[in-house]
């Protein structure tokens, strides 16, 4: 097995294994399931960029793309998590001992 055959195989396997995550994005029961699957797909896209760069022999260019993609993926995931945390049904039906540490942490950060 040569290096390039293995690289093609790794890229194809990464793409095929993204499909269950894509299924979870499509039919995920809650929105958080979709978010987890989107996060997984984004991380694997950064890895797939490195694989493509190895295949094309231009890894010096693609590794920057992968770094930027991982950064954007992290920021987007964190922002959507905070958004869903702030907006949806926070004040009612929560026990007070759950909300008190969260407020303290938000103030500290």
């Amino acid at each position: 097995m040569t290096t390039e055959g293995f690289t093609v195989f790794a890229g194809a396997a990464l793409f095929v294994l993204m499909l269950p995550a894509l299924y979870r994005v499509a039919v995920g029961p809650t929105s958080f399931d979709r978010l987890v699957a989107v996060n997984v797909i984004g991380t694997k896209t950064a890895v797939l960029l490195v694989v493509i760069g190895t295949l094309f022999g231009r890894l010096d260019m693609f590794v920057d793309f992968a770094l930027a993609y991982a950064l954007l993926n992290f920021v987007a995931s964190l922002a959507v998590a905070r958004y869903l945390n702030r907006t949806r049904s926070m004040p009612e039906k929560k026990p007070a001992k759950r909300r008190a540490p969260r407020k303290k942490k938000a103030k500290a950060s």
Binding site: V63, A70, L78, R82
Partner: peptide, 28 residues
């Protein structure tokens, strides 16, 4: 550079997992 990406993913993926988990738990 690849090690920088590895370090970044190693730091941020558990962080985003934690944030999403807490958001889901507090969302009920």
């Amino acid at each position: 550079k690849l090690l920088a990406i590895v370090l970044f993913i190693m730091l941020t993926s558990p962080t985003s997992t934690h944030a999403l988990m807490r958001a889901g738990y507090e969302d009920g």
